[in-house]
């Protein structure tokens, strides 16, 4: 099958797939960031139970394979009377996995600040809240731009898990498997989806590098 034939037959499918991948990525990433903040706050809180739960959360979702988590959410949760639609299953899986890595990024962002600056802020008479707001958060955010850019790309690649459940519309990886079960798509069928992923990743890292250059903290 040639490119023109492939695109005339399945072009719309691919386009829908691209949009589905993009939208799931965007929605997931917003929640990934929000949840990563919450988990990180728990991990740096002075309350031991919260720290333990936060650390455990990160270890679990950093180490569980995406497919295993998706299967649990999509097929085991309904047995516990928690039923989510397919798209939500994929997004929740992605959020859980991504937020663990996001929290790790924040933690290493905090670790680069150094005790000295905190002590200096304390000596000036800044309160705990002021130190967090003016010294810790700005630096943690600015040093995590590149890691978070890479995380956004990882989140996009994770949404390919959508091919493992009957999504409608399908995302990019699901489309390829759809096309190939109906026709001999050949290498081309894969290349179209692959280029969509690679192209998006390229744009994301371009933007990420730009932002990083602007806000990077010289050390």
């Amino acid at each position: 099958m040639g490119l023109s034939e492939l695109l005339s037959t399945y072009g719309e499918k691919y386009l829908q797939g691209l949009l589905a991948t993009w939208s799931m990525t965007a929605v997931s990433f917003v929640f990934v960031m929000a949840l990563a903040v919450v988990v990180t706050v728990a991990r740096v809180s002075p309350y031991r139970p919260l720290r333990v739960v936060g650390d455990l959360y990160v270890q679990v979702f950093r180490n569980i394979p995406g497919v295993a988590l998706l299967i649990i959410i999509a097929y085991a949760l309904p047995e516990l009377r928690i039923v989510l639609d397919w798209r939500t299953c994929v997004i929740v899986t992605t959020i859980l996995l991504g937020s663990a890595f996001g929290s790790e990024n924040f933690m290493s962002g905090i670790n680069t600040i150094g005790v000295g600056q905190i002590e200096a802020a304390r000596s000036l008479g800044l309160t705990f809240t002021q130190i967090i707001r003016r010294v810790v958060i700005p630096q943690a955010l600015r040093t995590t731009v590149l890691p978070m850019t890479n995380l956004l790309i990882a989140v996009m690649l994770t949404t390919a898990l959508g091919s493992q459940v009957p999504l409608s519309p399908q995302e990019l990886t699901g489309v390829v498997s759809y096309v190939n079960t109906r026709a001999t798509g050949g290498i081309l069928a894969f290349l179209v989806s692959a280029l969509c992923y690679v192209g998006t990743a390229f744009v994301i890292s371009l933007v990420g590098n730009r932002i990083d250059k602007r806000v990077r903290i010289l050390r």
Binding site: G116, G125, T127, V135, I217, R219
Partner: peptide, 20 residues
């Protein structure tokens, strides 16, 4: 404590300027 600290200046070995 914060008020009392604000009335004492402190200079460190490693300068500890806010990097950002």
């Amino acid at each position: 404590l914060a008020r009392m600290r604000s009335e004492l200046g402190m200079v460190f070995q490693q300068f500890n300027l806010f990097a950002h």
